[in-house]
Amino acid sequence: MSGFNIVWVGLSVGALVFASYFSVPKGPNQTTIRTSVILAIICCYLMWAITYLAQLHPLIKPKRSHPV
């Protein structure tokens, strides 16, 4: 239950981005593949991080009037 998870995951995603930048093979499509992979990773990370952060200290908690 720590917001630092976002940072740790962020760092590993950063490492992943770094790795994918160099692991894309040379060729006519290098730029396309590189950009797409990195953008995809960033988009997915962003969405996860936002969702995680939104639930870190929720202002409201789930309420229900009927049994689970």
């Binding site: 995680y52 639930q55 870190l56 009037s65």
Partner: peptide
């Protein structure tokens, strides 16, 4: 009406 108690954060996505 019952309200849940937070014990952690769901790891991936919405709880």
């Amino acid at each position: 009406q019952i309200e849940a108690r937070q014990v952690g954060v769901y790891h991936f996505g919405i709880d």
